[in-house]
Nucleic acid binder design. Structure first.
Length: 412
RNA sequence: GGAGGGGUGGCCGAGCGGUCAAUGGCAGCAGACUGUAAAUCUGCCGACGGAAGUCUACGUAGGUUCAAAUCCUACCCCCUCCA
């Protein structure tokens, strides 16, 4: 039973499954229905790109902008100097200044495909909390902000409790994190008139701390809204693969790989993901759900990839898919590796697998071959010397398993 | 500062002088079945080498021993309790 909302954003967000928890959905709805407000989403600068795990809150922020609200995207250049301890077993490494500034720039760019930034109307604004956090002085901060944080309440935060209950290392540095994020909210409430902070459900404690701080210090009402923690149907964390996170920036995850990630989601996730990560109408999604799953997965992959990397990235990806999985013509976007002619009759297929990067060591290449997972032109191969017959018209398709392949081209 | 416990391969976690490149689980890779899915089953899963084998690895640095992840010493880090 879905609550009935007056504001169109909450209606849509709810229908799509973007909402997990809020401080007061009823009052928030009333506030949103009154007219445009500003809201913010913060992501720490832990890497040079955000990843699929961040995508859900970003989609929610985007939805708010679509409905006329003003989004503020925050980069945690300041908070990243501490590191959010929430629900992690180990402390985050302390980043060097250079690494940090690279990360900040990368996170900024990660937001760009999803949020329209500018200075007019409800254009979004990008801010870095280092702007105010770096200037804080310890004693004034303790006196002005610290006094509003009863230790008992801090200790009762789930993120803190988990650390303590499990005897995990937990320093005073990390203990301060919720105060700083709370202070961010206060600062953005004052300078950007943000009345709402959104985030993943793991941010609940941090966000609520801010809501409370704003009430205590400014006697203003502010709201928290979180997105659900996403796991795949089989329980794995969203956005993780063997290679690690699925990054949003093309420099860290090629559009082809990104597309493949969505193309290969589990059957049971397709409908849910279409609602969460695309902007197709709910009717259209219902149609897709009742038709062929694989077709629906392609739509999902196209939509998410198109939004993230631009529509222009799609034709090339489709061509590569055709070539790789359906025996189509050689596609430009399938990677190539050029083979010096001197290798013929001298180097082996093992060498080729390693040199081209399909395998990371000769041992791995041998094992792959022994297990029957190495192919030349779709024919399983033995450990053998590279011969001219492997190439037709100077080209050979080399595959490691069924999903990784490249073209080896003879240099002329 | 004191007492005790602990640091093992991507993660968890056995081992506690030789048979340990290190049991097991998870993750991963490949194969089979399928649908570029899930589940299941099979094989693989440090590097080099065709192989025999060689090398590098059990917090760091030394030492004892024919032989050390296993014993000793110092140091570093983490946890618990005490002050």
């Amino acid at each position: 039973m879905s609550p009935s909302f007056r504001s169109s954003v909450l209606q849509e967000a709810w229908a799509r499954g973007l909402i997990h928890q809020s401080t007061d959905l009823g009052r928030l709805d009333a506030r949103l229905a009154e007219g445009p407000v500003s809201l913010y989403l913060g992501c720490d600068a832990t890497a040079e790109s955000l990843h699929v795990g961040h995508l859900l809150p970003i989609m929610l922020l985007r939805l708010f902008q679509k409905h006329g609200y003003r989004p503020v995207a925050l980069v945690g250049g300041g908070t990243s100097k501490i590191g959010d301890p929430s629900f992690r077993n180990t402390a985050r490494p302390i980043l060097s200044e250079e690494a940090l500034s690279k990360n900040v720039a990368g996170v900024r760019r990660s937001y760009e495909p999803y949020i329209r930034f500018g200075t007019a109307g409800n254009d979004g604004k990008l801010v870095d909390n280092a702007e105010w956090l770096d200037r804080l002085e310890y004693i004034p901060f303790l006196r002005d902000i610290g006094q509003h944080f009863p230790v008992g309440r801090l200790l009762s935060l789930d993120s803190v409790k988990q650390k303590l209950d499990n005897n995990l290392p937990f320093s005073f540095l990390e203990f301060n994190y919720p105060l700083l994020q709370a202070y961010d909210f206060l600062e953005l409430a004052r300078r950007e008139h943000c009345v709402l902070q959104i985030g993943g459900s793991d941010q609940w404690g941090n966000i609520v701390s801010g809501v409370e701080l704003i009430r205590r210090m400014d006697q203003q009402e502010a709201f928290a809204l979180t997105t659900p923690l996403l796991t795949t149907a089989s329980g794995a964390k969203m956005g993780k693969t063997a290679q690690g996170a699925v990054w949003l920036r093309p420099e860290f995850c090629a559009p082809f790989e990104f597309w493949q990630y969505w193309r290969n989601v589990e059957d049971q996730d397709v409908g849910r993901f279409l609602r969460l990560f695309t902007e197709l109408s709910l009717e259209k999604i219902a149609d897709l759900e009742s038709s062929d799953v694989n077709a629906a997965k392609v739509v999902l992959a196209d939509q998410v990839t198109g939004l993230t990397h631009g529509q222009g990235a799609l034709p090339e990806i489709h061509q590569a898919v055709q070539a790789l999985f359906y025996g189509g013509e050689a596609a430009e976007s399938v990677p190539t590796f050029s083979v010096p002619p001197t290798w013929l009759g001298k180097k082996t297929i093992v060498d080729l697998l390693v040199e081209s990067g399909l395998c990371t060591s000769r041992g791995e290449a041998r094992r792959l071959i022994r297990g029957g997972g190495a192919y030349m032109n779709d024919q399983a191969v033995q450990e053998e010397t590279l011969e001219a017959r492997h190439f037709s018209e100077g080209k050979a398709k080399v595959s490691a398993g069924k999903k990784r392949a490249l073209y080896a081209c003879l240099q002329s």
